[in-house]
Amino acid sequence: MPFHLRGTVLPDGTVRDLWTLGDRITLRRPSVPADTVADGGFLMPGLVDVHTHPGSAAGDETAFDPEVFADQIAAHREAGVTALRFPGLLGEIPDELREAPGSPRMITAGRWLAWAGLSRGAAFHTVTDDLVAAAVAETKAHDGWCKIMGDWDLEAPPVPYELLRAVVDGVHAAGGRVAAHCQSAAGVLGAARAGVDSIEHGMGMPQECVALMAGHGTTYVPTLTPFARRAPLVDTGSARGRLWHEGRRTMIRRVREAYDAGVTVLAGTDSAPHGNVAAEVMHLVEAGLPPAAAVGAAGWTARAFLGLPLLTEGALADITVYDTDPREEPAVLRHPRRVMLRGRIIR
């Protein structure tokens, strides 16, 4: 049986009727009866988390656990997240889970690729002597993305600019896009100069990066939530701790500056707890994004970035419904009245 929804459709703000036929939306009343599952409220395309790494149990970042992955994906889904980008996964997603009726849309970037000259890293990084070839291979093997460790921490030397520029050129020639992890000023500057497609984190971002990102069309995914969670635990009495806190403060300032310069800023949560993209939206608001832009960072703007449609004829039947306008009250994202995924009612 088709489902019927009526409400204010975002982001355009018009009151419309939508119907679902299977896993698609239609704006034309079907010839068969439909069950009305939402009458009033605000209808959004499903939420998006553009930076999350599900699949590893707490305390174990070296092994991919399909059961843990499924549980963490379920947490995203229950929160109204219907699309996910994984800039780095420990393993391959089982086909039956990726295409399951209750699974959000999944966009992967393959493994975390690390330059062989990276002096410090993590066990889950894939170190390679040929970063360009590895990046192109990951792009082709997954969903048109690769993930490069532009650096790892605040003090380790980053990937040399010439090498990162070669990665970007090679991946773009193959029709793909590059996400770059950056946590040092030098790492962020190199990534911004090289024209990567998205800068992830961007701690300590130099001011000049804002114009570089705007000029290259680079998207900024600051992942403020895990940094806010960690901040009380970082010792301000040490030089390294003070550097970390200054880097975080700089990152927060750059969010609004980037937005004002025309850079696309998006919402990603990075780590556990999963299904927490509403918290990232609130952190973006606190950083100075207008509420509507912050909601769009996990909604319509993020979907455009990933090539996913809005609530239009023939679009994917991934819909969230809220009692109040999230553009004015972003906190309502924590409490969806209705979540539909692939045309099925989740809640």
Results as ranks from 00 to 15, higher is better:
V188L: 05
G268L: 02
W145N: 11
Y220W: 04
P66L: 03
R120Q: 13
A298E: 09
A214H: 03
D169S: 12
H76S: 10
P54H: 03
R230L: 15
G343M: 11
A298F: 08
L310W: 15
E208H: 01
A134K: 01
L131T: 09
D65S: 12
L43Q: 08
D197L: 04
A180L: 03
C209W: 03
V167M: 01
R16T: 00
H172M: 00
D65N: 15
M251E: 14
L97K: 09
E155H: 12
A173N: 10
A141D: 13
L333G: 04
E92Q: 09
A141P: 00
A258E: 05
V221F: 09
H172K: 12
G187A: 04
F227R: 00
V37I: 15
V32L: 13
R240E: 15
V339C: 10
A304Q: 15
M1D: 09
V81N: 09
A180V: 01
F227T: 02
T301V: 14
A214S: 10
L341T: 00
T225M: 14
A134F: 04
V255C: 03
A74V: 05
L333T: 01
F86S: 04
L311H: 12
F305Q: 14
W152D: 14
T236M: 13
F86M: 13
V167D: 06
I319G: 06
M106C: 13
G117C: 01
D270V: 03
P273N: 07
L84A: 12
S184V: 00
A279L: 13
V159A: 08
V171P: 08
D23S: 14
A116G: 03
A211L: 00
H53T: 11
A38I: 06
G190A: 15
D323Y: 02
Q72A: 00
F69H: 09
T126L: 14
R334S: 11
P336A: 09
T219I: 13
H335M: 02
R24L: 11
T108H: 08
V37T: 06
P309W: 07
R24S: 12
G241N: 13
G40N: 10
L341R: 08
T320I: 06
L97G: 05
L47Y: 09
A79N: 07
P87V: 07
L89N: 04
I107N: 01
